[in-house]
C-alpha cells in the first residue's frame, strides 16, 4: 500500500484492520501521523455530541416493556377484554352533554382560544392514536405515576388515588405530558398534565365528542377528558385534592 492509498483508506475507515493498512502505518511515520489526526477528529466529533442519558430513561424502557407484556397477557386471558380495557375510542361516540353545547366546536369554534385548542387537540390526537389504555391496580398506577412525575416534573406530586388506572408520560400533539386515567361511576376519565405556560383561565368545552376541561395549574395545565359532566366534576375535584406542588 502506498501513501496515497493509505490516506484514502484513513479517511474512509481510520480504524481499518486491513493488514496492508496496519503495516503501512507501522513503517511510515508521516502516514501514522495522518491517521492519528483523522482518529482525533472522530474522537472530538463523538465527544462534541456526548450527552448524559436522562437518569430514568432506562427504567422507562424497561417499564414500557412490562406494561406491553401485561397488556398482551390481559388481552389473551380475559374473556371479555372490553370490560378490562377502557376504550377511549368509544368515548368519541359519546353524545355531547347539553350543558356544553354552548361552547362546542360547531357552535362557537372561535370561542376556544388557540392555546386551549392546541392542548385539547394534542390530548385527543394521542387518545385516538392509542385508543386502548391498560387498567392497572391502583397500587401500580400510583407508584408508576410517582416515578414518572419524578422525571417529568419533580415539583408536582400526586397523592394516592384509589381509582387511578393508568399513567404514562406520552407525546400529545406538540406536547408531552403525564397521561393518566381515573375510573369513575360513569366510566373512564382521561387526564393529562402538561408542563408549560398556563392558560389564562379554566375552560369547559365540548370537544371531539368529549366533555373537556382545560385548567391552569401551577407550572402548566391540566386537561380532563370525560364522557359526562358529572364524571368530569368528580375527577376534577379528586385531582384538586390529590395534586400538589412541593416547592
Amino acid at each position: 500500500m502506498n501513501c496515497l492509498d493509505f490516506k484514502r483508506l484513513a479517511l474512509s475507515d481510520p480504524n481499518s484492520r486491513e493488514h496492508s493498512f496496519v503495516e503501512h502505518s507501522g513503517s511510515c511515520p508521516d502516514c501514522l501521523k495522518y491517521v492519528g489526526g483523522v482518529r482525533q477528529m472522530d474522537a472530538d466529533l463523538s465527544n462534541s455530541v456526548e450527552v448524559e442519558m436522562p437518569s430514568d430513561l432506562m427504567a422507562r424502557l424497561q417499564l414500557n416493556q412490562e406494561l406491553t407484556e401485561e397488556a398482551e397477557t390481559l388481552a389473551m386471558t380475559v374473556a371479555n377484554p372490553m370490560k378490562r380495557y377502557a376504550m377511549a375510542a368509544s368515548l368519541a361516540l359519546a353524545l355531547f352533554v347539553a350543558g356544553f353545547m354552548a361552547s362546542n366546536q360547531f357552535g362557537a369554534a372561535n370561542s376556544i382560544g388557540e392555546d386551549y385548542e392546541a392542548l385539547l387537540s394534542g390530548v385527543v390526537e394521542h387518545m385516538n392514536e392509542q385508543p386502548i389504555t391498560p387498567v392497572w391496580s391502583a397500587q401500580k398506577a400510583n407508584s408508576n405515576a410517582n416515578t414518572l412525575l419524578a422525571s417529568y416534573d419533580p415539583d408536582m406530586k400526586l397523592k394516592f388515588l384509589s381509582n387511578l388506572q393508568f399513567s404514562r408520560v406520552c407525546p400529545m400533539g406538540q406536547y408531552k405530558g403525564l397521561h393518566a386515567s381515573l375510573e369513575t361511576a360513569d366510566g373512564q376519565v382521561t387526564f393529562a398534565y402538561i408542563k408549560g405556560e398556563s392558560v389564562g383561565e379554566l375552560l369547559d368545552a365540548g370537544y371531539e365528542g368529549y366533555v373537556s376541561r382545560v385548567k391552569p395549574v401551577r407550572g402548566g395545565n391540566l386537561i380532563i377528558m370525560s364522557r359526562t359532566n358529572k364524571s368530569l366534576e368528580e375527577a376534577d375535584s379528586q385531582l384538586e385534592k390529590a395534586m400538589y406542588w412541593d416547592i
Binding site: 456526548e50 450527552v51 442519558m53 436522562p54 430513561l57 432506562m58 407525546p171 408531552k176
Partner: peptide, 20 residues
C-alpha cells in the same frame, strides 16, 4: 441504550423527541 440515546438526540435535536 446509552449509545442509542446519544445518536437519537443528535438526529432528533430535541430531547423529548429523542426519548419518544
Amino acid at each position: 441504550s446509552k449509545d442509542l440515546y446519544k445518536y437519537a438526540l443528535w438526529l432528533c435535536k430535541d430531547k423529548h423527541m429523542a426519548e419518544d
